[in-house]
Computed example of a mutant assay.
Amino acid sequence: MTDIFVSDYDKQFKEILTGFDMNGFCETWVENQQWQLDFEIEKTEANPFEFDLLDYESSVFFLGQEFVVKQLSHEAQGNRIFKKVTAPHISYTMQDGYQYNTRTGTLSAMDCLKHIFSGQLGAMGFTYEFIDKNKVVEKVEQENFGNGNYLKLIQEVLEDYKLVMLADNKHLTFMPREDYGQVTENEIRYQYNTDQVSFDIDTLSMKTQIKGFGKKKEDDTYYFPPRTYTSPESSKWGIRIQDPVSDERYTIVGNMDRRLRLDLQDYPATTGSINLKLPYECDKGDYVRFIYEPMGLNYDIQIVGYKQYPFSAGKAPEITLSNNKKTIVNIMAQLAKAIKKKGAM
């Protein structure tokens, strides 16, 4: 069984954590947004020192990853004392630093990352790598990029360049969405390996063609003619036109072409929440086969979030699947606001 360790803020002590509710211990991950631990622990005769080590800003180590306690509540039931803990991954502490300087111009993703890491972020112990094996990520026109906390700036890079970030403690790996996740042979079949499933299948937003307009020159002509991308799915569904992209940051044709391919929702937007009957091996970004016979749907869909209960043999993970290209709400930004609000009380 995997051990969990707790360390005080100054890292003077590090002890195995015992006495926590094993059935309720939960690891939650949401792509580009959230990675945290939630659990409850009771103070016993066997764990008084570890229990006291577990405090605001102390660290919890799970599967080699460090999580920092940001939310902590104390409860008592008679003579029994409990703590409820929420500990986001150490990578989200980048929001404690700020890049005051800005850059303007046609910048690559690496240019932006270098600008972010040229500030205090490197001194905070963060390192990074950018992997673009197929050379699909091109430059984007940026205006006053900077003047924000590091987490906010990283989120801008993820959105502008259509990237995914994977964290290994304070080492951050950035890659294009196209290179992210492994296609597996796992299968999610409605009423087969699930006892509870909720799917939102939206064909209203399914389109097969999109046009993009880039930046204009001073003489009111475009740097490149408007681009049109037509999906191969148009042979099945016909021409369905999505609202155009109009973005003056784009001066390079290839950059706009990639944006159109990624933005076009050319298959039914599907988001599903599944409670599985049995333990299920899932990893961040894995593709699984989604089969929904009532609608004749059978295609690969990506794991974009999960809740796992690693210490409970009877609890299979809850998985969120999605092929929806729409931007989703930033949970970590909301968490940061909640922490700030709570601290002001």
Rank of each mutant, 00 (worst) to 15 (best):
Y98W: 07
T104P: 15
Q334F: 01
M332C: 00
Y250V: 07
A338N: 14
V137D: 05
E143A: 09
Y180C: 10
N324S: 11
L63T: 12
D21N: 15
Y267P: 00
Q120R: 02
Q155K: 14
A313P: 01
I303A: 02
L153H: 10
K11R: 13
K341V: 03
A46I: 03
A123V: 11
R80N: 06
Q196R: 11
E248C: 00
N255C: 12
N23Q: 12
Y150P: 02
P226M: 04
E50V: 04
I81A: 07
F61K: 06
L158T: 01
I154G: 00
Q99S: 08
N275T: 11
E42P: 00
S322F: 08
E178A: 14
K170E: 00
Y280M: 04
G343W: 04
G19Q: 10
V329G: 01
F20S: 12
Q36R: 13
S73A: 09
G181K: 11
Q182F: 03
R258P: 00
I41P: 01
E40L: 08
L121M: 12
T203V: 14
I301H: 02
Y128Q: 08
K216T: 15
N79T: 14
H171Q: 13
Y150H: 13
N324M: 01
Y280E: 15
Q209V: 11
G343R: 13
R289W: 09
I319V: 15
F82G: 01
E178H: 13
Y292V: 02
P279L: 03
